Structures are given as C-alpha cells and as structure tokens.
Amino acid sequence: MPEHPGLVPRQIHRFRQGKMGIAADVLAVEEPLNIRITSGGATRSVAITMRTPGRDEDLARGFLFTEGVLPAEVKVTVEIEKENVVTVTLPTGQSVDWKRLERHSYTSSSCGVCGKTSLEQVYAAVPYGDVPGVAFRVIPEVINILPAKLREAQELFEETGGIHAVGLFDLSGGLLHFAEDVGRHNALDKLIGYALKQGLLPLDQHLLLLSGRASFELIQKAAMAGIGLVAAVGAPSSLAVALAEEMGVTLCGFVRGGGFNVYCGEKRLVY
C-alpha cells in the first residue's frame, strides 16, 4: 500500500466462493476539514467539509473561489495550522463580506434552492461567464478516451475502489491534472485550487471529466473556472443541464463503452 494520508489499512472478513476468510483491505479516509479566513485581525470558520486528507491547501483555495467567497486575483496566504484545520489569510486592505457568507447557500445541490433563482444567482457570481462561447471544437473520439486515461491515473481508487476523481484535459485528450476525494465536489475544488495557484484560470481551452454523475454544484464550479466542456461517466441532473445550458457549457453524460450523450452545447462537437 502506498504511503498517503488518504489511505488507511483495515483487516476485514471476505466471503468468496462459499468460504469466509480474513483479508487485508484499504479504505479511503474521510475526515472533516475546517476552512477558516483571517481578515482584518479576525479569524472565522467559513466551512467544514468532509474530505480525503491531502492537498488541503488546493481544496481551501478552490472552495473559496468556486463558492464565490474570494476572487481569483486576490493573493492569499494559506497555512495548515494543525490537523484538519486550514487558515486562509487575506492581504492587508482586502476584506471579506461576512454577512454574505452567512447568506451563502445556493451552491449546494442539496441546500433546497432550485430552478430559476438558482441559475440567476450562479450566473451573477461567475467571473468568466462570457469566456467559453464556442471557442473550440472537439471530435467525439477525444471524449471517448478520457475515462480510461483518468482511471489509469487514479492511485487512491486503485487501492480503495471508493473514491471520486476529476480530470483536466487539453483539447486533444491529454491528461494535464487530476484530483481524488471521497467528495466529488472536493475533488473538483482541489483541481481548480491547483489551477488557481498556478495562475491558469480561466480554463477556457480545457475539458473536464467527472468520474461519477454531473450535479448542479459541479457544473457551477466548472463554470466559475471558465471550463467550456464537462463530461461525466454518469448521468447529469435536470438542474445541472439547465445551468450548463444557461452558462454555455457543453455537457456530456454516460461517457462509456465508446459513446456518450450530449445534453447541451453540441456545437462544440465536430461529427
């Protein structure tokens, strides 16, 4: 088993071919991460998210950006002070709207908001809303090769079989970066947080692959980063499709077995 903070060994009883035996297994770690902001000498907790340990700095950066809390141009200092606590310090003169954070509720697909209000709130928050357009086109064969490339890179999934992944690809299907986590939204925040730290945003000439289904919050986070095409191994939700269509994002689902469905933005695909 490779050394990784996101893996933990476990002895289990395994039933195979009518017999029960003791075996060694590996589990994906799930622990809470407390994300805090320090601004003007005051430090407050912004969120507690259940995640797989590792790349907590990327996760904090990506979360605060994709949730619309901090703009991309703000140069913050990120410090992992102790286990499961990360503090993001704003530069002198930069403030955060604490009242807005208290009202901040639209970004989760399970928060109870839906329909037109959700789409309008997200559209107002996206910094690269006009970037994607139809600026690039992709042949279907490129979409079909993405799952195998991401699967090959998934170290934690290989060990546990119970973890989500997201992959960022170039327009020819080359894997540029990926992230894994027990939470699909955390995996995407880690990936976008890395891109943010590297100064790569907007990701308007890239493809994004989700290892599972495409939910509203994942499309929202992708749109925040300026991504124009999102593909998923699983199915999208109705609100995810509505948001993708509103944001001009091409959304593909059920990418498996040499084919896929296109739910909106088909003009980016060359047949």
Rank of each mutant, 00 (worst) to 15 (best):
T89G: 11
E159C: 15
P127Q: 07
L176V: 02
A195K: 02
C111D: 13
V29T: 05
D130A: 13
E246Q: 13
Y194A: 10
E120A: 11
I143G: 06
F169G: 01
T160W: 07
G6Y: 01
K149D: 08
L175A: 00
L196G: 01
C111E: 13
I219A: 01
A24E: 12
N186T: 07
I22A: 07
A240G: 13
R51K: 06
V46A: 08
A195C: 15
K116P: 01
V88C: 05
R10T: 11
S45H: 11
I37P: 00
M1S: 12
G234K: 03
L269C: 13
A240S: 14
V270K: 07
D56T: 09
H104T: 15
I12D: 10
L208F: 05
G18Y: 12
A125R: 04
V255Q: 04
F178R: 00
L176Q: 03
P132S: 09
A135S: 13
I145Y: 09
G253N: 12
E141N: 12
I145F: 09
G257A: 14
E246L: 14
G161T: 06
E245C: 09
H4D: 15
L239W: 12
V255A: 06
V76C: 06
E155T: 12
E102C: 12
A24L: 07
L7W: 07
K267M: 11
E73D: 15
A187G: 00
R184H: 09
F169R: 02
D204A: 07
A187W: 00
V46Y: 00
H206I: 01
M1N: 08
